[in-house]
Design a protein around this nucleic acid. Structure first.
Lengths: 234, 234
DNA sequence: GGGATTATCAAACGTTTGTTCAATGTCAAA
DNA sequence: TTTGACATTGAACAAACGTTTGATAATCCC
């Protein structure tokens, strides 16, 4: 093929795009900058990926496909351990948050890039990105929600959903710009220290789920068994 | 001056820019789209604000100046009530979160726009925006951190900082795209219902601050208070 | 009223963007 | 050696971007 480099052009493009999207967001990253970093002609992107959006979808799939699989495995193991009993909230949260953090350390040497990418995507305004991202994890999300509900049966569904969203907001926020977080906390919070981040989130939000209910709309006390989740639209 | 409209051109530009920035972010919003919505010539922006960045700074100042003042007033009142004693965590959090939510309802008819703007800004990748935003609230942030620290003296500073960032991450995430949140929760979470949002956040994160310490570099961790007993079943 | 200041406007500037296309190179099978 | 599929390239496209300019109205002060 050609002499210049270590990896295939396709991989080089994906690597460069991943970094660019993580640093600047989807809109902010430009193809010309990406192909320059990948040492590849501009048209190559269109040959392999069809469009900028196609490139982003490929970047997603490369990382999030395995990530999704890891979630399913972890959930399966979790359920096996539980043997039908409700799980400790800490266990659920740890299982839910660990795969993303593990990916961030595993995908060397791009760990921190992947980390920022996840944060950036989760909070990207663009509806196309939101849909792409959400589509990858819709079922996984639902699975975790069900486990949480089973372990906090006294908490109304609305409360669970609120606090569940808080978790992802906090997660995305922290992952999104680790350097900034480290700066403004005077070095006391370093998101690259995954174990600490994980422990802090688990501790904080497990307690959050144990906090008293807020919604007045009847909890599970209404009907003995609540439907797992009624509507989850598009 | 001229006939066409109700408000000054300057105000119309600010309104349109606010909405555009909230919807599309700073990079995503274009001046041409803004001036079209404001029914104003493109050069008018440069006459009044000098540049796109100047326009954004003006948008910030219009909303965040009063917001900052409101924070100081609320803090002052809070301290007066406390009379030197540590405040209940719920009170601190409610005081901290309410001004932004009040602004969102007060600035009619742009309430939800302001809300989205706050969320968008807090999670915008652009370092210029981050610095502009952070500069507006650096002292306020510090003030709340001190109150929290005083009310949770057994919690290491690192733990406080982590969970403090979680709060803003969750807040930004929820405010950023209320429509999306309402959709994916099947209508169960509606960020426009400010009282519920506030109550949920206060409940969740007050409990979060009461969760056991995680950092081993804890200052007061040896002070005979409880050590983490994370094995509480739900 | 007249001169200076303030507002407003249409038109253009030079970049940068995502995208397309025709041409060329590469390389194994026929 | 010819064929044909795959891979790569430079050049160009139209559109959108932030910004500047120079002229023209509107307004105010003396």
């Amino acid at each position: 093929m050609s002499q210049p480099s270590e990896q295939s052009r396709k991989t080089r493009i994906l690597d460069a795009a991943e970094r660019a999207f993580a640093d600047l967001g989807f809109e902010g990253a430009s193809l010309r900058q990406i192909v320059q970093a990948a040492r590849v002609n501009l048209a190559t992107v269109y040959y392999y990926f069809g469009s900028k959006e196609g490139l982003m979808a490929a970047v997603f799939e490369r990382r999030f496909g395995p990530l999704r699989d890891e979630h399913w495995e972890a959930l399966q193991k979790l359920d096996k351990e539980a043997q039908g009993y409700p799980l400790p909230m800490e266990k659920i949260l740890e299982t839910m948050l660990r795969p993303a953090l593990r990916l961030a350390t595993a995908a060397a040497p791009q760990g921190r890039t992947v980390m920022r990418l996840i944060g950036r995507i989760a909070s990207d305004p663009d509806p196309r990105i939101q849909e792409l991202f959400r589509g990858q994890f819709r079922e996984v999300r639902q699975a975790y929600l069900e486990r949480i509900h089973r372990s906090a049966p006294e908490l109304p569904e609305a409360d669970i959903l609120w606090r569940f969203e808080f978790i992802w907001g906090a997660f995305a926020f922290v992952l999104c710009n680790p350097a900034k977080l480290e700066r403004i906390t005077g070095g006391m919070c370093n998101p690259a220290d995954m174990n600490t981040l994980l422990a802090q989130m688990v501790a904080c939000f497990a307690a959050g789920f144990r906090a008293p209910a807020v919604s007045r709309t009847g909890p599970a006390s209404r009907c003995g068994k609540r439907r797992p989740n009624a509507r989850d639209r598009v």
